Simulated assay, not measured.
Amino acid sequence: MDTMAAQLGKIILGSRSPRRAELLQLLIPAEQIEILTPANSVESGFQDAHTWREIERLVSEIARTKNDDVIQQLEDAGRTDYQAVLTADTVIVCLEPRQVDDKVATLHVLGQPHEEGDWQSEVRRWFKQYYFGRDHWAVTALCLIDSTGWLHESVVRTTVTFRRADLKLLDWYLSTKEPLGKAGGYAIQEAGSMFVESIEGSLTNVVGLPLESLNKLLKDCEIDTAMSKS
Results as ranks from 00 to 15, higher is better:
Ser147Asn: 12
Arg124Glu: 08
Leu209Asp: 05
Val109Gln: 02
Ile145Glu: 03
Tyr173Gly: 07
Thr204Pro: 06
Val206Phe: 10
Gln112Gly: 00
His152Gly: 00
Gly133Val: 12
Phe195Val: 05
Glu116Phe: 07
Thr106Trp: 05
Glu197Cys: 09
Trp137Asn: 02
Trp119Met: 03
Leu180Met: 14
Arg163Trp: 07
Cys143Glu: 10
Leu203Trp: 15
Leu203Cys: 11
Ala141Gly: 02
Glu153Arg: 06
Lys182His: 08
Leu203Gly: 04
Glu190Met: 13
Pro113Tyr: 02
Lys177Leu: 12
Leu142Cys: 06
Gly201Pro: 02
Trp172Phe: 14
Ser154Lys: 08
Phe162Pro: 01
Thr159Val: 12
Val196Ala: 10
Gln129Asn: 07
Arg124Val: 00
Gln112Phe: 03
Ile145Gln: 05
Tyr186Gln: 05
Ala187Trp: 03
Arg124Asp: 06
Trp150Arg: 14
Val100Gln: 13
Phe127Tyr: 05
Lys103Gln: 15
Lys182Ser: 10
Leu142Lys: 01
Phe132Met: 02
Val196Asp: 09
Val207Asn: 06
Leu107Val: 02
Leu203Asp: 07
Lys177Ile: 12
Trp150Thr: 14
Glu116Leu: 10
Arg163Cys: 13
Lys128Ser: 03
Ser121Gly: 15
Gly192Arg: 05
Val160Leu: 08
Thr176Met: 12
Thr161Glu: 13
Glu178Val: 10
Phe127Asn: 00
Glu178Trp: 12
Val160His: 04
Thr204Trp: 09
Cys143Trp: 04
Trp126Thr: 00
Trp150His: 14
Thr176Tyr: 12
Asp171Thr: 14
Ser202Pro: 03
Gly184Cys: 08
Gly192Ile: 11
Gly111Pro: 03
Asp146Asn: 14
Arg125Tyr: 11
Trp137Tyr: 12
Gln120Asn: 02
Gly185Cys: 05
Ser175Lys: 14
Gly181Asp: 09
Asn205Ser: 07
Leu203Asn: 09
Phe127Ile: 00
Arg124Ile: 02
Glu122Leu: 06
Thr159Cys: 13
Gly181Arg: 08
Gly184Ile: 12
Pro210Ala: 09
Arg163Gln: 15
Glu116Arg: 09
Tyr130Trp: 07
Cys143Lys: 02
Leu211Cys: 08
Val123Asn: 00
Gln120Val: 07
